[in-house]
């Protein structure tokens, strides 16, 4: 995006929201406070002839730190925002569509209204694109029950209410009940996770939404805040902690290329090509159940090199699958 568009958008936003705090402006814009301050500096060099003091955009910060209020002056020419650029129209259209894929019915209706309202409000090419472009980023539909669960959890986070979850842990391969203080729902690698403080584990955890059998929102209000150390937005939590071991798998030449494509850039992964075309993949082992499923899915084309005890787990799992098919 051009810097001009960035600056003029911020100028219009601040002109329309005079008196907004740096903190709220950062929340609303997705920019960091220091980025907003730098852009305000740039904007204060802009003006129109005859360049008397009142012809330059000016600002002052009233108060301290992130709570300081932005008092913007002499930016009246920019008070009304510019029409969308074609790129902005498409980015918003695609984002609204993608967001709707995980939204409840009411929000989906509101999003459709917004899109129509925008198509009517825009001009020129931006209007055409908003009204006539097909889907851009197509993702599998989320089931209604999942979208409703997402909304329930959002409400609980908003009202800071503890939740009781009945959860199927893939680590333990069984259902258990947990009391959780929910902080955020995070989409990662096509799945949604609830990030929160688990009273049972006495630590933060990520709970995959598909594996939640039931959510009960309690009346208990909580004040616990997410720990500052977590890099929110990245799913560091999924790969956090101490890996129990190192998983090493050798893949046959038939699947080596696919494994290389999919895993070479995974966090903590190492790949080593063999002379015979095979591939040795090494990963930190956080979850033996996942590892067994992963290796089993390659059938005869993968073999666990280490840890050796996992080979026994794999054999037991495969035998249980074969057994369940015999019974059928």
């Amino acid at each position: 995006m051009s810097e001009l568009s960035e600056l003029s958008s911020l100028l219009s936003f601040l002109a329309a929201n005079r008196g907004i705090s740096l903190r709220d402006a950062a929340r609303a814009t997705g920019l960091r406070v220091d980025q907003i301050c730098r852009r305000l500096e740039v904007l204060s060099f802009c003006g129109v002839p005859p360049y008397s003091p009142h012809d330059y955009v000016s600002y002052r910060l009233v108060g301290h730190g992130d709570d300081a209020v932005i008092d913007l002056q002499y930016a009246q020419h920019f008070a009304r925002p510019l029409n969308f650029t074609p790129g902005e129209a498409l980015a918003l259209k695609y984002a609204l569509e993608h967001f709707a894929g995980g939204a409840d019915e009411e929000s989906v209706g509101l999003l459709a209204e917004l899109q129509e309202m925008l198509a009517n409000a825009l001009h020129g090419r931006a209007r055409e694109l908003m009204a006539r472009t097909g889907r851009g980023f197509v993702v599998p539909r989320k089931a209604k029950v999942m979208r409703e669960m997402l909304q329930t959890l959002q409400d609980a986070i908003d009202r800071r209410r503890a939740c009781e979850l009945e959860y199927f842990s893939s680590h333990r391969a069984r259902l258990s009940s947990r009391r959780v203080y929910p902080f955020q729902v995070v989409e990662h690698d096509a799945a949604f996770y609830l990030y929160g403080w688990c009273e049972t584990a006495q630590a933060t955890r990520h709970f995959r939404l598909e594996r939640i059998r039931e959510v009960r929102v309690t009346d208990q209000r909580y004040d616990r805040r997410p720990p500052p150390s977590r890099k929110s937005g990245r799913m560091a939590g999924l790969f956090e902690g101490k890996p129990g071991d190192s998983l090493q798998v050798r893949f046959a030449p038939e699947v080596a290329r696919e494994v290389q494509n999919d895993w070479a850039s995974a966090p903590g992964a190492k790949v080593q090509a063999g002379r015979d075309g095979s591939l040795l993949l090494t990963l930190p082992l956080y979850n033996p159940h996942w590892a067994v499923g992963f290796v089993a899915s390659f059938g005869p084309f993968a073999r666990i090199v280490q840890p050796r005890w996992l080979s026994a787990e794999l054999a037991a799992t495969v035998r249980s699958i074969l057994q369940s098919h015999k019974q059928g």
Binding site: M1, S5, E6, S9, L10, S12, F13, A15, A16, N17, A28, T29, G30, L31, A79, R80, P81, L82, F84, T85, E88, A89, A91, L92, L118, A121
Partner: peptide
């Protein structure tokens, strides 16, 4: 980001 700023400003 730029589109949403314009919308909020609008």
């Amino acid at each position: 980001s730029s589109a949403l700023l314009k919308l909020q400003a609008g």
